[in-house]
Computed example of a mutant assay.
Amino acid sequence: MSERQAQTGFTLVELLAGLAIAAILVLPLADLLRTGADSARITRAALDLNENARLALGRIARTAADTPEAKAVTDVAPASWLAPVTYTLTGTDLVERKAGISSVIASNVAAFELSAPEVVDGRPLLAIALTLSAEGTTVTRTRTVRVGPRTPDGEQP
């Protein structure tokens, strides 16, 4: 006489039901994780753009402060205000040319503008505006600096 042994484990229907319930519970979590990863990517892109803009503006501001001769900005074109250094927008790269050497100082540049809103004591105030854009994020930063070095008595050399 054979005795029927008690079976342990789950049936196929029970396993499928368990998987369906788990999928219903995990699906919103996966969407939440994807949204969080997208948010982190956009935030990282904005931080990178801010850092790139800050570095480029700092470099241009140092060049302006070290320009030996502050020209009357009404007499010359903006591109030559910081001569012998020039800045041009080539595609999406901001290129600095100095002594025949070209260097990309910022990428993903959407707009770049130099303006001189005023001149005080023969030293023009240079306004620099830089807009960078990448991965759906746009960052605009501005900086103002007086062109030309200062002497100890506050007058331009």
Rank of each mutant, 00 (worst) to 15 (best):
D93P: 04
I105L: 14
D121Q: 13
L89G: 09
V85Q: 04
I101E: 04
R97D: 05
V95A: 10
A111L: 10
S107R: 14
A110G: 00
S80V: 13
N108T: 01
A106I: 08
S103G: 03
L82I: 13
S107P: 00
E96V: 14
A106E: 01
V104K: 05
V95S: 10
L114V: 10
G100C: 13
S115M: 10
F112P: 08
A77Q: 05
S80P: 02
P117G: 11
V109R: 05
P84C: 12
T74V: 13
A111W: 01
A106K: 01
S115C: 11
A99E: 01
F112R: 12
V109K: 05
F112W: 13
G100K: 09
V85S: 09
G100Y: 01
A110N: 01
T86I: 12
A116V: 11
S115W: 02
V95C: 12
S80H: 02
F112V: 12
V119A: 10
L89V: 12
R97H: 05
V104P: 00
S102N: 08
V120R: 14
V95R: 06
P84D: 07
E113M: 14
N108Y: 00
N108A: 04
A106G: 01
T88E: 08
P78Y: 09
A106L: 09
L94N: 03
T74L: 15
S102F: 07
A77H: 07
S107G: 07
V104S: 08
